[in-house]
């Protein structure tokens, strides 16, 4: 575009436009419960709804230590590369959702409950509010 003489203005515009676009695509779903984690590394591509993990629900039953030290969940949304094979072999969610401690994996829709296309993110997080909804989380996870 020859109209923009200065390289600077041009890049500035491009930056602004991409930020605008990103904001339109990922508007804040400012209502979700604080700490809800959406996990969507593979779900969309596999034609399943993305997974929602509710921290508030689990933390009245277990201390953080059980999941984040004993079961080895890293502190990063999408960062654990969870898949169904690991789950049925008793890792991650499967350490509990096995019909012994909590209901078993055949209840697909209880976990796969997000609107299709919802990106990996921690809901209501400061980071999410500062940086365009979940995009950074997703990139980090890959």
């Amino acid at each position: 575009m020859p109209h923009f003489h200065h390289q600077f203005t041009f890049t500035f515009h491009k930056l602004l436009i991409s930020v605008c676009m990103a904001l339109m695509i990922f508007p804040s779903t400012g209502n979700a419960e604080y700490g809800d984690v959406v996990i969507n590394n593979y779900s969309d591509a596999a034609g399943m709804r993305p997974v929602i993990f509710p921290h508030w629900f689990h933390r009245v039953r277990f201390r953080c230590k059980v999941c984040h030290a004993d079961l080895g969940f890293k502190f990063q949304a999408g960062g654990n590369k969870i898949n169904m094979l690991k789950i049925i072999d008793g890792e991650y969610c499967g350490a509990c959702h096995n019909g012994e401690i909590a209901w078993s994996v055949e209840n697909c829709d209880l976990c796969h409950s997000a609107k299709p296309g919802t990106p990996t993110q921690v809901h209501e997080s400061t980071l999410q509010k500062l940086i365009i909804g979940g995009k950074k989380d997703k990139k980090e996870a890959q």
Partner: peptide, 16 residues
């Protein structure tokens, strides 16, 4: 009504 759960999914109404 939280913007991330799919209201089309019947199971959403089973969640607490």
């Amino acid at each position: 009504k939280d913007g991330i759960h799919d209201p089309q999914n019947e199971t959403t109404f089973v969640l607490q």
